[in-house]
Every structure is written in structure tokens, then in C-alpha cells.
Design a protein around this nucleic acid. Structure first.
Length: 415
DNA sequence: TCTGGGGTCCTAGGACCC
DNA sequence: TCTGGGGTCCTAGGACCC
């Protein structure tokens, strides 16, 4: 029978930091989001002190001080590179690998022969080559493999749910919110029907599930029963959108500052589009502010002739900003979303091409290459001025141990 | 007076994920 | 005072068409 494995890096961001800082082992450690705003990764020690996922940092400052919790500002350059290293090891262990997120991969196998031993071997090899601890779940469907990897964290690292009887027992003691794809809202709608555990959900009538949660919920129920509905996506589908957005270190009031931030975001977004060989047919710009508990957005979109050209996207972003900007508002956040993406190489012929396109593509390509070799942001377009009045706060960030020569770790060996 | 039925496309918002 | 960033999918409702 075909089988799936989910490989999940434990406390990924914290583990990446620990890989280069052994002194952080056995201590409570957390990693903070942009602006040191929220907690986005926690070591087991930090979890047991009661630090929740996603809680605002300022709320737990006293707890941090009391227990000497180590806090680190996120270093995504490092995490992306570590993720790539894990993926490299995995390709040696399975015929098909889907890199589902920065810290999770689905593997698929034609049959489940000796799968448990193979999973243990993969886990040991990842530890050896990257220093990262992973948990692996084995099962006949993706949703079950995911559940398996969660349970594996407290079960020696590898858990097989290939056996139906064991599966049912575990589902019966699992709250329905622990299922991948079911969160608070859905749980609230299921509760009146007496569905609180994953087991109860799995055994519920199809018609009931369909009416309460829709087609996605029904697929999930089938997955839990052992019928695979979510296929492995080896070649990731074309992405639907590209977003670059940031919260500001302090509220921003002026249009000029918002435009300078958006110019930088537009340049990043354009660069990403080019890296994926895509052009955007629609640009959205939004400005976020806070009113009490609520996040409010002023935003607007515009269709454009498909492009991945930095200057033209900067121009569009600035124009949109001007259109939606309201004087006197304290903006906390801004972003740009590129959508209507199409492959750059199969674009329709450009009827109105005035010869600028090719020149501008060559220029963009050169800028990308220079930035890739020297460091992101080394070369900028006009309008992409350095952050003035909208920069991020970031107290403590680790060096880019694996991606920058100047950050390479020095090791001294005593003979 | 009587006001169909089926379809598509688009958009905004909800819900969820990591 | 201080609350991330980047995504996906689904649904409902409106506009429009024949």
C-alpha cells in the first residue's frame, strides 16, 4: 500500500539557532517576529513556562526576565538555508518529496515495507548533517501523517499510524482542533453536533460534515478514515500571489514615508517575481492601522500590463499609495501584493512594446545578480531610499552563519 | 397582473496553515 | 507605549449573459 511520511523540524527557528549555539541547549529560548512583535518559535523549556505561540513579546516581558528566557530576533536568511539543507538530505531517502513549508516536508513511498526503519535512518542523517531534530509521522494519508508527526514529538521521534486499530485509538484521544485544517471556528460549529474528538469527527455522517464544514471538511474526514484525498504535490503549483509587507517600528503619518517603504517592498516583490520567472497582471497596495483591537486596512488594486519590472512596479505602488492615503491616520503597516501572475516566458506578445522592455529586463537582471552576490539591497533603484521613519526594530539577531562569509563561525581546536 | 432558469465570472471575506 | 509575514482554498453574493 502506498504511504506518506511527514517530516517536521522540531521548534524549527529555535533549533536553527541552537545548531550554532550549543550553549542554548536545555535553556528556555524564543524567536521573535519582525519588530520583535510576537513569539514565533519556542523551545520545549519555553513552552513549559507557559509562553504561547504568537503572543506579543511585551506581554511576556516579565516572564522572560523572571526565567531568564533567551530571546532572539528572527533571522530568516539562516532559516531558509537550513531548510534547504534538510530538503537535500530528504531527497536521498524518498522517491518524491514535497517541501510543504519551511520546516515540513511530505514524502511519498510506493509501499510501506520497512518504512519505520527507513524513517529512523533519515531522522538520524538529518541530525548528523544539519544538527536539527525532526519528528516523522507515517500513515496512509497526508492528514494522518501530519497527526503522526505531532504525536511523534513525545514518542521518540518516529510514529507509524499505518495500523488501523492504533490509529482509531489515537484519534479518539485527540481533540478535533488538533487535526490539520480544523481550528477554533470550525470546532465551535462542530460542538453542537457532539463532535469534540478527532474520532467522533471521523465517524460522523458525510452529509453532516458537508453541511457544517463544506467540501474541505469532508475531504479531511475521509483522510482520517484512511482514504487518501490530498495528493502529494511534487512540483509545486504556480504560485497565485507574491506579498511583501511589514509592520513599522513606529506609526507613520506622512505619504512620503509610506511611499518610500512601498518602493522598497515593490522592489523586493519584483525581484521575487523575476526569480520565479513570473509577471504580475495586478498590483494591490494596502496600508494598515489599528483601532482598538481591530486591524483596519485602506487598500486598492489596479490591473497592469503583465510586468516584473522594478521601476514600473515602484511607480504603480506609489500612485496607489497616493490614492488610498488619508491624511491624519497613524499607519502601522504597509504592503504590496502582486497577483494575476503568469509565466514571463509565455506572455502574450506585447503590442505596445516600445523597445524599453528588453533594456529594462537586462537592467533588472544585472541588479538581481549584483544583489545576490554582494548582499540584498546593495544596489537600489531611486525612490527605494533607505528606511526613514518606517524601519523595524530588531534587538538581537544571530549572524548568517551559513550564507555570509563575514558571518562564518570560527572554530578553534585545541590539540 | 403575471417576473424563469441556468450559467459564468468576479470579488470580498472567512478560515486556516506555517 | 509595545500585537509577524506569507500564503491557500472555499463560499456567498452580485453582475451579467442567454
Amino acid at each position: 500500500m502506498p504511504a506518506f511520511a511527514l517530516v517536521d523540524c522540531n521548534n524549527f527557528f529555535v533549533s536553527c539557532e541552537r545548531a550554532f549555539r550549543p550553549d542554548l541547549e536545555n535553556r528556555p529560548v524564543i524567536v521573535l517576529s519582525n519588530n520583535d512583535g510576537c513569539v514565533i518559535s519556542r523551545s520545549e523549556e519555553a513552552k513549559s513556562l507557559g509562553v504561547g505561540m504568537g503572543v506579543p513579546f511585551f506581554e511576556i516581558r516579565p516572564l522572560v526576565a523572571e526565567h531568564k528566557i533567551v530571546f532572539i530576533s528572527a533571522n530568516h536568511e539562516l532559516y531558509v538555508d537550513m531548510s534547504r539543507r534538510v530538503a537535500n538530505v530528504l531527497t536521498r531517502h524518498a522517491p518524491v518529496v514535497e517541501n510543504y513549508s519551511i520546516d515540513e516536508s511530505f514524502l511519498t513511498f510506493p509501499d510501506d515495507d520497512g518504512l519505520y526503519e527507513r524513517a529512523r535512518a533519515a531522522r538520524a542523517e538529518i541530525r548528523k548533517w544539519t544538527g536539527l531534530p525532526v519528528s516523522i509521522g507515517l500513515a496512509p494519508t497526508k492528514a494522518l501523517a501530519k497527526l503522526g508527526s505531532d504525536k511523534a514529538k513525545k514518542n521518540g521521534g518516529v510514529l507509524s499510524l499505518l495500523d488501523a486499530a492504533l490509529r482509531e485509538r489515537i484519534l479518539d484521544e485527540t481533540p478535533v482542533t488538533d487535526i490539520w485544517g480544523i481550528a477554533k471556528r470550525s470546532a465551535l460549529r462542530l460542538a453542537p453536533h457532539g463532535i469534540r474528538t478527532a474520532g467522533e469527527f471521523m465517524r460522523a455522517r458525510d452529509s453532516l460534515i458537508l453541511s457544517v464544514l463544506g467540501i474541505g471538511g469532508l475531504r479531511l474526514a475521509h483522510e482520517l478514515r484512511g482514504t487518501s484525498c490530498l495528493n502529494l504535490v511534487a512540483a509545486p503549483p504556480e504560485r497565485q500571489s507574491i506579498t511583501v509587507s511589514r509592520s513599522f517600528g513606529a506609526p507613520v503619518h506622512s505619504l512620503a514615508a509610506l511611499q518610500s517603504a512601498l518602493a522598497v517592498f515593490a522592489a523586493r516583490a519584483a525581484e521575487r517575481a523575476r526569480r520565479h520567472g513570473l509577471r504580475a497582471g495586478e498590483v494591490n497596495v494596502h496600508l494598515g492601522r489599528r483601532e482598538g483591537d481591530r486591524q483596519l486596512y485602506d487598500g486598492d488594486s489596479i490591473r497592469v500590463p503583465p510586468t516584473c519590472d522594478t521601476p514600473s512596479l515602484i511607480k504603480t505602488a506609489k500612485a496607489l499609495a497616493e490614492k488610498i492615503y488619508v491624511e491624519g491616520r497613524a499607519y502601522k503597516k504597509a504592503g504590496i501584493v502582486l497577483s494575476g501572475l503568469e509565466r514571463a516566458d509565455v506572455s502574450q506578445a506585447e503590442f505596445f512594446d516600445d523597445g524599453q522592455t528588453e533594456r529594462s529586463q537586462r537592467l533588472s537582471g544585472a541588479v538581481d545578480r549584483i544583489n545576490a552576490s554582494i548582499g540584498s539591497g546593495a544596489l537600489r533603484y531611486g525612490g527605494e531610499t533607505a528606511s526613514k521613519g518606517w524601519g523595524s526594530r530588531c534587538e538581537t539577531q544571530s549572524p548568517c552563519w551559513t550564507t555570509r562569509w563575514e558571518d562564518l563561525k570560527a572554530v578553534r581546536a585545541a590539540m
